[in-house]
Amino acid sequence: LVLRSVHGADANGELEAFVPQLAVLLALLLAVLSVGVLIYFIHHVPATLSMSNLIQRVGDTLQDRIRCLYPTEIGEGQEEPEARAAERLGTPIETLRADDRIGYLCYVDEDALLGRAGACDLVVELIRRPGEFVSRGAPLANVYGTGKLDDDVRAALIAAFVTGPERTPRQDVLFPALELVEVAVRALSPGLNDPYTAVRCVDQLHAALVSFGQRELPVARRVDEHGRLRMVAAPVDFGRFCDTVFDGLRPHVARDANCAVHLLEAVAETLPQLPREADRAVLRRHAEALRAPAIASARDDRDRGRIAHAADRSGAVGVPAPA
């Protein structure tokens, strides 16, 4: 709050007024700045909530998780610990179970598990992956070793499994993929009927399939500094990732010819970029599974022909592997 003018008395007792020029100038500058911030805010809010930007952010998160959780690209080589094993685990001495905490498994502290397993000469085999829902008493991991676990060791191992009310993408590569699937499914619902939003989600999933398929699967068997097996993880492989994406999309995409064709064409473009034949076989299987319901749901011969042509491209046998 700034006064436009200030009244006071001079040395002779007569009234006089003066203008606080610096304060008034600062107030005017702040007023102009406030208007500018308001205009930026009015522009920023709808841009932030734009569906295209939201889909792009989720897609970027998915790409980031793939790079972080699967850091080695195929052909770069991966260190293989000698004791990684053809080693048989035998019979577990105990199965760790969740305590009273109920929720989604958000994080598994692998360093803590490796440290405790090494200190107690144990092997921990994970049963649950991050992102899975854990109820009271649900099995978390099998523990192998000799003797019985004491209460302190058991509590320390269970504490390495962190649960929460919501899934997070920190160690869960399927979560951002499922978010894209969810947006696509909602967009294709009769209430919205927005196939173009679904197509944008398919584009982001297509990019993720290419990135995922060109990555090495992390070593499941983890060893300590002495090369002894201490933990067996359960990383998400390419087949599990594809099953999650395509099984979620198929019933809804099949009802829309344009989305079905777009998804099949995405598969066709992905196939030549996958170095492993097993991964290409997974994509062909999903393309074939989509073909029949999509053709059955098509409304005219032209759409049926487009779907059949795209399915032939995506399910073609003998797609050459990249050199």
Results as ranks from 00 to 15, higher is better:
Leu1Arg: 10
Val2Lys: 07
Ala17Gly: 10
Val19Ala: 08
Gln21Ser: 14
Leu22Asp: 12
Leu25Pro: 04
Leu26Ser: 04
Leu28Val: 06
Ser34Pro: 05
Val37Leu: 14
Phe41Cys: 09
Ile42His: 06
Ile42Gly: 00
Ile42Asn: 02
Val45Ala: 13
Leu49Asp: 14
Ser52Tyr: 08
Gln56Lys: 07
Arg57Gln: 15
Leu62His: 03
Asp64Glu: 13
Leu69Thr: 14
Glu73Gln: 14
Glu76Tyr: 11
Glu76Arg: 15
Gln78Ile: 11
Glu79Cys: 06
Glu82Gln: 14
Ala85Ser: 14
Glu87Gln: 01
Pro92Gly: 12
Glu94Gly: 01
Arg97Gly: 00
Arg101His: 11
Arg101Thr: 13
Gly103Cys: 01
Tyr104Met: 05
Cys106Gln: 15
Val108Tyr: 05
Gly115Pro: 03
Gly115Asn: 06
Ala117Pro: 02
Ala117His: 06
Val123Lys: 04
Ile127Met: 00
Pro130Val: 04
Pro130Ala: 02
Glu132Gln: 07
Val134Ile: 15
Ser135Ala: 12
Arg136Trp: 08
Ala138Trp: 00
Pro139Ile: 07
Pro139Gln: 06
Val143Ile: 11
Asp151Arg: 14
Leu157Ala: 07
Ile158Pro: 04
Glu166Met: 10
Leu174Asp: 07
Gly191Val: 07
Asn193Gln: 14
Asp194Lys: 14
Thr197Lys: 03
Arg200Gly: 05
Leu205Val: 00
His206Arg: 15
Ala208Val: 06
Ser211Tyr: 12
Gln214Lys: 15
Gln214Ser: 13
Arg215Asp: 06
Arg221Leu: 01
Arg221Gly: 03
Val223Gly: 03
His226Arg: 04
Val232Asp: 04
Ala233Gly: 04
Ala234Thr: 15
Ala234Gln: 15
Phe238His: 02
Phe241Asp: 07
Cys242Asp: 04
Asp243Arg: 15
Leu249Val: 10
Leu249Glu: 06
Pro251Ser: 05
Asp256Met: 00
Asn258Ala: 05
Leu263His: 03
Leu264Gly: 04
Leu264Ile: 05
Val267Ile: 15
Ala278His: 06
Ala278Leu: 10
Glu288Met: 13
Arg291Asn: 09
Ala294Gln: 09
Ala294Met: 12
Ile295Gly: 03
Ile295Thr: 14
Arg299Pro: 05
Arg299Glu: 13
Asp300Trp: 00
Asp303Val: 01
Ile307Asn: 00
Ala311Lys: 07
Ala311Tyr: 10
Arg313Val: 01
Ser314Gly: 15
Ala316Leu: 11
Val317Phe: 08
Ala321Gln: 10
Ala321Lys: 09
Pro322Asn: 11
